[in-house]
Every structure is written in C-alpha cells, then in structure tokens.
Simulated scan of single mutants.
Amino acid sequence: MVETVSYRPFAKALPPGRARALPWATVIAGSMVTAVPVVASLPLLPPFGLLMLLTWRLLARFALRPWAAAPLGLVDDLVSGQPLGSAMLLWSACFLVIDLIEQRLVFRDFWQDWLIAAGALAFCLVVGRLIAVPIGAHVDWAILAQVGISILLFPTSARLVAWIDRKRGTPA
C-alpha cells in the first residue's frame, strides 16, 4: 500500500512573518494577473485576486484577518483600473456575508464552500459591472461567461491554496 500522506512533524516551517505574509502575497499576485497584457475580444479573464481572497477565507479561515479585504481590495482597484473603492466595498461585503454564513453553518464541506464562493463571485462581478460600466453597455453575456469561468476555477484555486497552506506550516 502506497502512503499518500506526507506527515513530517519535524519539517522546518516558514518563519512566522513569512507564513503570515504568504496569503497576502498570493492575493496581490492574483490581482496582478490583470496587468498581464492579454488580447481578447471578450473580457473572460476571471478576477484572480478575488478568487484567491475567497479561497483563503473559506479554506483557511484565520489566514487573513477580517479587515484584510479592504486593503487588498484597494490594491486590486489600483492594479485593475476599476473605480477606486469598488473592490474595497465589494470584497468587505463578501467577508461580512461569509461571517454571517459561518455563524449559521457550524460545519461546511467543499460543496458549500464552492456555492458560497460562486455567490460571492457572481455578486462582485455583477455589482462591479454596474459600478464601472454604463447601464446601456451590452456586456451582459460577457459578464455571465466571466462568472461561469470564475466559478469553474474555484476548485483549482482551492487546490493551490491548500498546497500553499500546507507548505507554509503553522506560524508560531
């Protein structure tokens, strides 16, 4: 029988400062993906910063403080070119709603996390569209496609965050 669990109790963990900064760095790196020049006729690139933020919040609850959504949203606003304060407001609202859901649901599994992330992603993309784009613009199908792609990428980001969280160890 092949052992798939790598239990190494004496493996050296990251220093506490780096372990605490790693979730912040991954969310900022996810926001920086929008700065990569990609030529596309439709805006189908999902909001990787929001995706990483939600994944850290849902999988590793104490990796980011409750107030972390506001400064990380500011960084996303500055990098992505959205109206200043929109991601700060929407990401903070998502954190508050997730806190309310956690008060009601004591135990969650992956499917519930995926459903919560799907609702948060759809909310942020649709309300962000209403804030940033005039109502008369015909971008509804593109937003729906972007929401669908973002929702389908949640399991991949969950795998990535779980791998990073395992490598980061437990900060002292």
Score class of each variant (00 low, 15 high):
residue 30 G to F: 00
residue 31 S to P: 10
residue 34 T to H: 06
residue 36 V to F: 01
residue 38 V to K: 14
residue 39 V to Y: 04
residue 43 P to L: 01
residue 44 L to D: 11
residue 46 P to E: 02
residue 47 P to Q: 01
residue 48 F to Q: 00
residue 48 F to K: 02
residue 50 L to G: 11
residue 51 L to D: 00
residue 54 L to P: 08
residue 56 W to P: 10
residue 57 R to V: 12
residue 57 R to F: 09
residue 58 L to R: 11
residue 63 A to Q: 11
residue 63 A to W: 05
residue 67 W to K: 12
residue 67 W to F: 14
residue 67 W to I: 11
residue 69 A to R: 00
residue 70 A to M: 06
residue 70 A to G: 01
residue 72 L to E: 13
residue 74 L to S: 11
residue 75 V to Y: 04
residue 76 D to I: 01
residue 78 L to Q: 06
residue 79 V to I: 13
residue 80 S to P: 04
residue 80 S to V: 05
residue 80 S to N: 10
residue 81 G to S: 08
residue 83 P to F: 12
residue 83 P to N: 13
residue 86 S to C: 14
residue 87 A to R: 14
residue 87 A to Q: 12
residue 89 L to H: 15
residue 92 S to C: 03
residue 93 A to I: 07
residue 93 A to N: 11
residue 94 C to N: 06
residue 95 F to T: 02
residue 95 F to I: 05
residue 97 V to N: 02
residue 97 V to A: 07
residue 100 L to R: 14
residue 100 L to I: 09
residue 102 E to S: 06
residue 103 Q to K: 08
residue 106 V to G: 12
residue 109 D to M: 13
residue 112 Q to W: 03
residue 114 W to H: 02
residue 116 I to D: 13
residue 117 A to D: 06
residue 122 A to G: 13
residue 127 V to Y: 04
residue 127 V to R: 03
residue 128 G to F: 01
residue 129 R to A: 07
residue 130 L to M: 11
residue 134 P to K: 03
residue 134 P to W: 00
residue 138 H to Y: 06
residue 138 H to Q: 07
residue 139 V to W: 01
residue 140 D to N: 03
residue 144 L to F: 07
residue 145 A to W: 01
residue 146 Q to F: 01
